[in-house]
Every structure is written in C-alpha cells, then in structure tokens.
Computed example of a mutant assay.
Amino acid sequence: MKIKICGIRDKRDLEVCEEAGADLIGFINIERSKRMIGIGEIKELLSSMKNKNKAVLVIEPLNMADAEEKIVNSGIFNIQLHSLSSDEIRKLKENYPKKIEEKTQKTSQLTITRAVGISEVIEQDKKKEIENFADVCDFLLFDYEIHGKTGGTGMQIPTKTAIEAAEIAKSHDKDVKLFLAGGMNVSRIKNEGRILEKYFEFFDVNSGVEYKPGIKNKSKINDLMEIKAK
C-alpha cells in the first residue's frame, strides 16, 4: 500500500508528510482548487524537501504550452493532469522532455498521471476514455466527478465502481499503474484498503487528513501511516 498526500501548501505540513513517510506529496496549481498554491511557492517548498522525487505537480493546463511552462518553472517532472487529451499527452511525452532539458539544462523524464472522473456508473464512453488514457499515461487517477470536474469534491467512488474502472484499465494495459482518489480517508482505507490495494498501487488522500481545506491534521496523517505499515 502506497500513500500520496495531496494539497500541501506550507512547510509545516510538508515536514509532517515527509516525517510520516508519505510515498508521494502533491502540490496543486489549479485556480479552482481551495488548495491552490503558486508555482513560486511550490519551488520554495520543493527546495526544502528531503526527497524531491516524491513531489507531484497537479495542474489543469489550457494546452501543451501551458503545461510545459508550469513544468519548467516548477522543476517537477511527476505531473498529474486534470486536462489535455490523450493525443496531447502523447505529444507532451514525446516532445517536451527535450524542450525542458534545453531550457533547464537538466535531464528529465516526465511521468504523467491523468485524472479520470468517475461517478456511480461507468458508461461506454467513460470506458473508452479510460482505455485511451491508459494507452499513453504512466498512471491513471480515478477521482469522483461532478459536472465534468474532478478533484476537491470530497466524495467517494463506490467500491464496486472503482474496481470496475481498475479492471478496465488493467485489462487494456497491464502495466498502467493506478491511484484511487475521491474522499479517501483513514476509515475507508482501514476498512477497505486490503481489498482495494489488489487493484490500486496508490491511495490519494487530501481532505481526509485535513482540519480544513489546505491545513493538514498530523494525527490523521499518522493514523493513516500506521494502517499503511501493518
């Protein structure tokens, strides 16, 4: 079981996550998010991280050029996308590492996670969407979808539906890795984690370990990591 804690906005919470042993730490640069943080602030937090490879940049770029700019300016190459088509992601992975290397003088390999919105039922068009993104992405992240938007809903994908989505992705590409997000918390992971980890490599937790949006609860994070360690 691996845990990503997302929505980090300050150094205190970053240190708590690192000390607790979070496998990945997410910084959200999406204006509609209550946990939005600027690229400059992300760079400052990144400079203090003990293991920068754990950093994930969460963005919803307008286009590939916007994505490239955010990647270059942040210095993070683990990217979670809440926009861009499968064709755009393919081009991003093929072309932009060279451009980024030219601009930053650093060798980089983009790791792309694409968020895919799921609600109660997976229709045929959603099945095709999952398959298309599985073709081009390193990871897929299933999050609860409301009105076409994912992230920040605090709502959970039903277990049966989450497993169905995972089976669709894995049957299409056995190598694609999966995150489960959407209202994930200590209670759900404690009760269903051992079942769900058969299908998902990562659990993505955000609001489930907070006092309020953008302010993490150290006690809940430690409780979560105790479950992970068992």
Rank of each mutant, 00 (worst) to 15 (best):
K127M: 00
H147R: 10
Y144M: 04
K106R: 11
N95P: 13
E120Y: 13
Y96E: 14
D138I: 03
A134W: 11
I157N: 05
I118D: 00
G183V: 07
F139D: 07
I122Q: 04
A115G: 14
L81Y: 09
D175A: 10
K174F: 14
E131I: 00
L140W: 12
K91H: 13
V186L: 01
S85R: 05
E129R: 07
A134R: 09
N185T: 01
K177L: 08
E102Q: 14
L180K: 05
A162R: 08
D125F: 02
S86R: 08
T107W: 15
I163C: 01
K190R: 15
G193V: 08
A162I: 03
L92P: 11
N191A: 10
L140Y: 12
P97E: 13
I189H: 13
R90Q: 15
K91C: 09
R90W: 13
I122P: 01
I163F: 10
Q124M: 09
F77C: 04
D125P: 06
T113N: 04
A162L: 01
G154Q: 06
R188G: 02
G152T: 02
I189G: 08
K149D: 03
I130M: 06
N95R: 15
E164Q: 13
F77V: 00
R194K: 15
N132A: 12
L180C: 07
K93R: 12
E167A: 02
N78H: 09
F179H: 07
P97K: 10
G183W: 14
F133A: 02
L81E: 06
E164A: 08
I157Y: 02
S108Q: 13
V176R: 08
I189W: 14
S85W: 09
L180F: 06
P97C: 06
Y144F: 14
S119V: 05
A166T: 09
I189E: 10
G154A: 07
K98F: 14
K190F: 12
N185V: 05
S85F: 11
A166Q: 03
K126P: 02
K190N: 13
E167K: 14
A169I: 08
A166P: 13
M155D: 05
L92Q: 12
V176H: 05
F179G: 04
G193K: 08
D175G: 06
D135M: 00
F179N: 04
T104S: 11
E145P: 10
K127H: 07
M155T: 09
K126H: 00
I157D: 00
K170D: 07
E94Y: 13
G193R: 09
